[in-house]
Simulated assay, not measured.
Amino acid sequence: MRVAIAGAGAVGRSIATELLENGHTVMLIERESDQFVPETVEQADWVLGDACEVSTLEESGLELCDVVIAATGDDKVNLVVSLLAKTEFAVRRVVARVNNPANEWLFTEAWGVDVAVSTPRMLAAMVEEAVSVGDLVRLMTFRQSQTNLVELTLPEETPLAGRPVRDVDLPKDAALVTILRGERVIVPSPDDPLEPGDELLFVSHSDVEPQIRTALGY
């Protein structure tokens, strides 16, 4: 997969390194000369230019990319890059970084964004996930389908202890996708028993989250 990243700051370089380690081809686009340091991520292709300019994107061959990640520290720039990538270069998947949670409502399909990643919201969700037991925590939102990845850790006194997954009567627009048990990652089957301390990951529509709580006995 070929991925273009707009913004070669600490965030952009970190994403590039992870993607390269996973075998993907990465291009970093940076407009600030002091951030243009190819030796920091030597395996990536580097482009010095403004990702908000169509000419820069044309010269970099953005239309050949499968994914564009708008990862700058400026929400306005990330929105413009997302819109250009989707409308002018027909990039299949666009991921945008949200720096200010107040701007999150803008990061939608109307601006070419398929997935919006809000760093403050993600950090808050991770804190909630770390301290919340027996409550549903929203980890992230999938903009295209308007569904969420949510998590619930079963407490010690859960009424579901020892009962199989099939006994959890989930609503129509929700699915249990993973059970995290210690160091194990379990793809659930109907006969798998649930245990106290299990971290249950669901994909669901926000409207049915109360029904998930009810199905789990909360």
Rank of each mutant, 00 (worst) to 15 (best):
Y218D: 07
S60F: 05
T119W: 03
E199G: 05
H24Q: 14
T56A: 13
N148L: 10
L28A: 00
L20Y: 06
A124H: 13
T56E: 11
D198S: 03
L176M: 08
P159W: 01
W46I: 11
E32R: 15
D75G: 10
G197V: 04
R93L: 12
L19W: 00
E109T: 13
Q35L: 13
V113Q: 05
E209C: 02
L201F: 15
V77N: 01
T40G: 01
M126Q: 07
C65R: 12
M1S: 15
V77Q: 04
F89H: 11
A125Q: 04
E109M: 11
D198T: 09
G134M: 08
L136Q: 01
A130T: 11
V187M: 11
S204N: 06
G61F: 02
S132Y: 12
I5S: 06
P164E: 00
R92K: 15
Q211G: 06
A110V: 07
V95E: 05
L170P: 01
L123H: 02
M122V: 13
G134T: 07
A125M: 08
T214S: 12
T214R: 15
D74L: 10
A161S: 15
V133K: 10
L200Y: 12
I69V: 15
V203W: 01
C65E: 14
L149A: 09
R93V: 04
V113D: 03
L48F: 12
E195N: 08
T158Y: 09
L64D: 15
L200R: 13
A44E: 00
D74W: 03
C65Y: 09
D74F: 10
P171H: 11
E42T: 05
V133E: 14
E59G: 13
S55V: 14
W105C: 01
P193H: 11
V165G: 07
P196E: 11
G162F: 08
V113R: 04
V41G: 04
L200Q: 11
H24K: 12
L154H: 00
A16C: 00
L20R: 07
F142L: 15
V80Q: 12
E104Y: 12
A116P: 11
V150G: 04
P190E: 07
M122K: 03
V131F: 13
N22Y: 03
P120G: 11
G162R: 09
L19T: 03
T147S: 14
A102I: 02
A51K: 09
L48N: 02
G9C: 08
V68P: 04
T141N: 07
L200D: 09
V77K: 00
L48R: 04
P164L: 03
T158R: 05
L152R: 08
V177Y: 03
V67Y: 05
S132T: 15
I29N: 06
L28D: 01
D74A: 09
L62R: 11
E195V: 03
M126A: 14
W111K: 03
K172E: 15
N78P: 07
T158L: 08
